[in-house]
Amino acid sequence: MSSTFEQVAAIISETSEIPLEEITPESHAIEDLGIDSLDFLDIVFAIDKSFGIKIPLETWTEEVNKGLATAEDYFVLDKLCERIDELVAAKA
């Protein structure tokens, strides 16, 4: 079974046409990979479906806007994968 990162990287690569080898755990989805907001919606949709979760994107965005969290907390891929694993665990 592939890791969370491998699944997420595959989704990003397919959705945003970014070569898989350019996507690393340290990549920032927006700053490094240049994913725009609409592509990010498609990515979240695919992640929601693949993992059977609902990423609380609005809550995350609000937390970043209010300074309660940094964008890196959610949009650097290893952090994003940690959040996904937490959501999957909470669902079980």
Binding site: L41, V44, F45, K49, K54, P56, L57, E58, T59
Partner: peptide, 8 residues
């Protein structure tokens, strides 16, 4: 799909 801040 009923996502957070989006729907499909």
């Amino acid at each position: 799909h009923d996502g957070s801040g989006f729907a499909v």
